[in-house]
């Protein structure tokens, strides 16, 4: 348990270093990574399906990133990119590719759809957090209702 928390922090913080995040902000990225990883691995225990767990975890990571970015006056990307990285479906993408290499196309398609769904869920979670923080600044709506 503690080992996992420490390793999750180290993994996210080293990702922040890979993306050249300023040194004073690296530890915040690590903490956001812990939050997103824990909500991603804890929610399925409560009976939530993995895709929804990924969406919620991405939402939590993006929400925290937007909040802290607004508070510290830095671009939100500095926190959002390392925070979302633990959710990247690397394992599923790998098993997709392994199945295709072994010519097990049916299994590969199944895993591939899981991968795409998880990636879409991460995007959905991020978009949800973004739309909370951009209320009253909407773009590209369908009708011009502001004309009288």
């Amino acid at each position: 348990m503690w080992l996992e928390i420490i390793l999750c922090f180290i993994a996210t913080a080293s990702f922040a270093v890979i993306f050249n995040v300023p040194a004073r902000l690296v530890w915040i990225g690590g903490c956001i990574g812990i939050a997103s990883w824990y909500s991603y691995s804890f929610l399925p225990i409560l009976g939530v399906i993995p895709v929804f767990a990924a969406a919620s975890a991405a939402f939590i990571a993006a929400f925290l990133s937007h909040l802290l970015a607004r508070f510290l006056h830095v671009p939100v990307t500095t926190f959002a990119i390392p925070g979302v990285i633990p959710l990247v479906p690397g394992g599923r993408a790998y098993s997709t590719m392994l199945a295709f290499v072994e010519e097990d196309y049916l299994n590969g398609l199944e895993r591939g759809i899981e991968t795409i769904l998880q990636a879409g869920a991460i995007a959905a979670g991020m978009v949800f957090a973004l739309s909370i923080f951009s209320i009253r600044r909407g773009v590209a709506q369908r009708y011009e209702t502001n004309r009288s």
């Binding site: 996992e4 999750c8 993994a11 080293s14």
Partner: peptide, 9 residues
């Protein structure tokens, strides 16, 4: 280090 930590996770 990121590779090692992720392989554990």
């Amino acid at each position: 280090v990121a590779g090692a930590a992720f392989s554990y996770l």
